[in-house]
Computed example of a mutant assay.
Amino acid sequence: MPPPPPDASTDAGTEPATESSATESSVVESVTEPSVADGADIQDTLDLRLPDELIALFGASDAAVAQGAYAGRIGADARTADKAPARRAASSADDLLDNVADWGPATTSAGVFQLVPVRTERDLPLISRWMNDPAVAAFWELAGPDAVTEAHLRAQIDGDGRSVPCLGVLDGTPMSYWEVYRADLDALARHYPARPHDTGLHLLIGGVADRGRGLGTSLLRAVADLVLDRRASCGRVIAEPDLRNTPSVSAFLSAGFRFAAEVDLPDKRAALMVRDRALRAVL
């Protein structure tokens, strides 16, 4: 997978230092390539073009209509995918993340949430627009023409399956971008004692209205639970927000992650956050 965004703070797309709430929705969680400080408290871990009619809808003044049409498209795609079990079965043999597309929905305090694997022909304009939000660009560094974001997505989609880019769909509306990846197979594993099947998360909340109201914490907990529920071989969920992004670190802590260590990554000093299966019931 490509090097993760420079800042993986939990409040994807939030104004970096302005969100004081521990539940930042501006969750810009992105697990970059961390490096663990020796002796740190880590308990021996081991490594669209959219159709013209949709574009017109997005450009229309009635944003609600546009979002509804887009959400409907995603729902239709999901139903179509459900009718192709043979294709899924064939690809799942090499799936390193236990087929994220089949993980299903999770009920959260904010509504029903689901991860939907990205399709560039459908999702690129939306994700690129989010990446060009200055608050998001400050961490992900993917601002610019659609081709910049497309290259980032393609490196994962056309890769070996160790990283899966997804839209986060809440009550039928795409509102966040996620990357679920094998931390133990990523460059990140060179910087901390990884364990087999460690699973990492990167996240950004797309809409300004969804940031700073605790949504980030709710979704982080829900997705971490999905990982642990759907990946029996995974004992821990990993993340490493920028250490300077206090709201992001707080959101992870509120979502049941523990602070394990400070790590020196190529682009930042990060807080290594860990959600342990063994401590799931008490955090």
Rank of each mutant, 00 (worst) to 15 (best):
P3V: 15
P6C: 06
A8T: 10
S9Y: 04
A12C: 11
E15C: 05
E19I: 13
E19Q: 11
A22G: 13
V27D: 09
E33Q: 13
E33A: 15
P34H: 03
G39V: 09
D41K: 14
L48K: 07
R49K: 11
L50D: 04
A56T: 14
V65G: 07
A66K: 04
A69D: 08
Y70F: 15
A71D: 07
A71N: 07
G72Y: 07
I74V: 14
R79T: 11
K83R: 15
R87P: 00
S92A: 15
A93V: 15
L96Q: 13
L97Q: 03
D98N: 14
D102W: 01
P105D: 04
S109Q: 13
A110R: 13
P117G: 08
V118P: 01
R119M: 04
E121Q: 11
A138Q: 06
L142I: 02
A143K: 06
P145V: 09
T149F: 01
A151T: 14
H152W: 14
R154Q: 15
D158N: 14
D160C: 06
D160L: 10
D160I: 08
S163L: 05
L170I: 04
D171C: 04
G172Q: 04
T173N: 06
M175K: 06
W178I: 04
D184I: 11
L185A: 12
A189L: 06
R190E: 13
Y192R: 07
Y192G: 05
T199G: 03
H202R: 14
G206I: 05
G207Q: 12
R213P: 00
G216F: 07
V223K: 00
L226G: 02
C234A: 15
A239F: 03
E240L: 06
D242W: 10
R244K: 12
S254D: 12
F257M: 01
R258A: 14
R258Q: 12
A261M: 02
P266F: 06
A270Q: 03
A271T: 00
M273T: 02
D276N: 09
R277E: 03
A278L: 09
